[in-house]
Structure formats: structure tokens, C-alpha cells
């Protein structure tokens, strides 16, 4: 499973960074950087929270 960012929707609000900091970071320009894509089983819960928490619905988990 991996996480995908739709950069046409993302505005860098950053909620994902607070919920899954190993995966997401907003850079100095205010843009979201995906630090890693592959989601392990142990990380799935926090990634699901990040997906649900995104105010622009820019995140997806895909198999």
C-alpha cells in the first residue's frame, strides 16, 4: 500500500504532517513534500487518519 498526493488539491495546510510526520512535511515554500510513499501495516492507521484529516481531500491510499 502507498500514499498518493493530489497536488492539484493540496494547499499545504499540513494536518497530515502532524498526524504522520514520517511521511509528510511542509517545506519553507509552503508546499507539501512526501517523505516516503510505501505504507507498512503498522503505519496504516495513522495514514488513514491523515487521509481523513485532509481538509482538501488531497490524499489517497492505493494498493
Amino acid at each position: 500500500m502507498r500514499v498518493v498526493v493530489d497536488y492539484t488539491k493540496c494547499t499545504g495546510l499540513g494536518i497530515c504532517e502532524s498526524l504522520a510526520p514520517a511521511f509528510f512535511e511542509v517545506n519553507d515554500e509552503g508546499d507539501l513534500v512526501l517523505l516516503k510513499e510505501e505504507v507498512g501495516d503498522a503505519e496504516r492507521q495513522e495514514l488513514e487518519e491523515a487521509v481523513a484529516g485532509c481538509p482538501t481531500e488531497a490524499l489517497r491510499l492505493v494498493d
Partner: peptide, 15 residues
């Protein structure tokens, strides 16, 4: 204010 790169790092600390 225009601190997008920092705000969530503080949210983690508060959590």
C-alpha cells in the same frame, strides 16, 4: 503567519 513549515511541528509537540 506564513509559517506553514513550522506550525504542524508545534502541533505534534502539543499532542
Amino acid at each position: 503567519v506564513n509559517g506553514q513549515s513550522d506550525v504542524m511541528k508545534y502541533r505534534v509537540q502539543i499532542m
